[in-house]
Structure formats: structure tokens, C-alpha cells
Design a binder for these strands. Structure first.
Length: 203
DNA sequence: AAGTTTCT
DNA sequence: AATG
């Protein structure tokens, strides 16, 4: 039996199709104002396979200088677009944490994109959970423990699913093994959007 | 290694 | 190092 690590919660079909469409429209507006950019690995400059943008007061970026949160888009230099109201609402319903999210990282996966196993640890406070929302094509999501090399389990995530990494699961290693092309009609040109809500600073 | 490749 |  593949049981999820402690503190890792999968909420299948958390968003119904209407809610997914509404959220997608919000994200389209975000991307129109803050275009997807190509993150690269620190030091090596090797590009990640996902493209990304953010909304909220802070956004996560990756460039030759490292990983960090910053208030502006790395290409346009403008402030990130405001966090859509429905993301604050979703956080209130699901996170079990008083302070509101400060960052929403928007990752776009085309059919070839993957994400290696990693921890979300660039935040100053791990008390708040990480809330992850899937839109579009299915993916295989892998979750491990707080240390590399521990046991991992995988689950298939579909559009509208939400995953929460909180408590003991807050620093669980996780990644995306693969995208299952053409498994959702939500995104007309295919692919998968993942929205990650995080608190960055100490509340 | 938030990568890429490889194989018990 | 996992073994997706």
C-alpha cells in the first residue's frame, strides 16, 4: 500500500469544473500582465523545463544568482500582479492558517516538462503549509520524506486537485515525474498549470 | 541540482 | 541517488 507521507494531503476534485474555469481566467490575466519566463539553475544557468510567473506581493525566481523571492518580475521589472481573490478564499478553506498567502507561483508544464525532487525551503517561515492546485493535463506527482533518499510514493494529479504540504509534510521532497498529454480539455493548447500558494515571511 | 541520465 |  502506498500511503502518503504524514502531513501530505491530497484533495481530489477540490475545484469543480466551473471553479477551474474561473481560476484559469484569473491566471490568464496574471500571465498577460506578468509573462511566463524561463528560470535557470543557479551557477550552471541550465534552464528548467517549466516556465513560470507569479502573483501576490512576492514571487519565486531562479537565476544564475540563486533561488529567492522578490517583489518584481525578472524581465519586466514590474511588481507582480495582485493575488486573485479566489486564491485567498481557497487558502482560507484549505490551509488552516490565519495569515494569508504572499506568493502564488504559477508553473506551466508543456508535455515534456518535469520537475526534479526538491524541498520548498526558500521561505522564512515553515509554519504555514504549501497549497498546490493543478489545472489542465494530469501529471505524476512524487512525494518523499524530509530527507533525500527516503521512500517515495507517487500519485496521479488531475485538473482541480489540490495537494497540501503542511506540518510534518511541509518540507517533504516532491517533484513531477511526467505530464500525461491531452488528458484534460481545460487548457486549449494542452499542458499543465500548477499554482503554489505560500507564505514567505514570518507572520 | 527546482537537472539529466540510468537502471535494481 | 532513485528505480518514477
Amino acid at each position: 500500500m502506498n500511503v502518503l507521507p504524514k502531513g501530505v494531503r491530497h484533495v481530489p476534485s477540490c475545484l469543480d469544473p466551473a471553479a477551474q474555469k474561473a481560476l484559469l481566467e484569473d491566471i490568464r490575466a496574471v500571465v498577460a500582465e506578468a509573462p511566463l519566463f524561463q528560470p535557470v539553475m543557479p551557477r550552471t544557468g541550465k534552464p528548467l523545463s517549466v516556465r513560470m510567473t507569479n502573483c501576490g506581493s512576492l514571487g519565486w525566481v531562479a537565476d544564475r544568482n540563486g533561488y529567492r523571492y522578490q517583489p518584481t518580475h525578472p524581465v519586466t521589472g514590474k511588481s507582480w500582479p495582485a493575488m486573485p481573490e479566489r486564491l485567498f478564499s481557497l487558502w482560507d478553506e484549505i490551509a488552516g492558517h490565519d495569515a494569508p498567502p504572499e506568493a502564488c507561483l504559477v508553473n506551466f508544464y508543456d508535455e515534456t516538462a518535469k520537475m526534479g525532487m526538491h524541498q520548498d525551503k526558500d521561505e522564512a517561515d515553515f509554519a504555514a503549509p504549501v497549497v498546490s492546485i493543478s489545472l489542465g493535463d494530469d501529471c505524476r506527482f512524487r512525494v518523499g520524506e524530509t530527507t533525500r533518499g527516503g521512500r517515495t510514493t507517487s500519485l496521479r494529479l488531475a485538473s482541480g486537485d489540490v495537494v497540501v504540504l503542511g506540518g510534518e509534510g511541509r518540507l517533504a521532497y516532491h517533484g513531477v515525474d511526467r505530464i500525461y498529454p491531452a488528458t484534460s480539455a481545460l487548457l486549449k493548447n494542452g499542458g499543465r498549470l500548477n499554482l503554489t500558494l505560500r507564505r514567505v515571511t514570518k507572520a
